[in-house]
């Protein structure tokens, strides 16, 4: 867990240096943190052994619900 948080922190610091230097618009920060936070949350769940319901399972359920694949 700590290792994951550290890797993400390193990655964010690396990108933030670039963002601050070139003064990127606010929407870049919003999008960037939305994607990275989602990734971090899923990573922490995976590291703790609680695998969240994956997109592949959602897609499979949707396709089975439509009745294309049984």
């Amino acid at each position: 867990m700590v290792l994951i948080v550290l890797v993400f922190a390193l990655f964010i610091v690396f990108d933030m240096r670039k963002f601050v230097r070139i003064k990127v618009p606010a929407k870049v920060y919003v999008l960037y943190f939305a994607i990275v936070t989602a990734s971090l949350v899923v990573s922490l769940f995976l590291a703790s052994g609680k695998r969240p319901y994956s997109p592949a399972k959602v897609i499979e359920a949707a396709i089975k619900f439509i009745g294309i694949e049984k």
């Binding site: 670039k18 963002f19 990127v24 999008l31 994607i35 995976l46």
Partner: peptide, 17 residues
């Protein structure tokens, strides 16, 4: 500016799925 974040998500998704 966004490719790094998307790549991180892609890595997590590849393991998560």
């Amino acid at each position: 500016w966004l490719s790094g974040a998307l790549t991180v998500f892609c890595i997590v998704l590849s393991v998560w799925q």
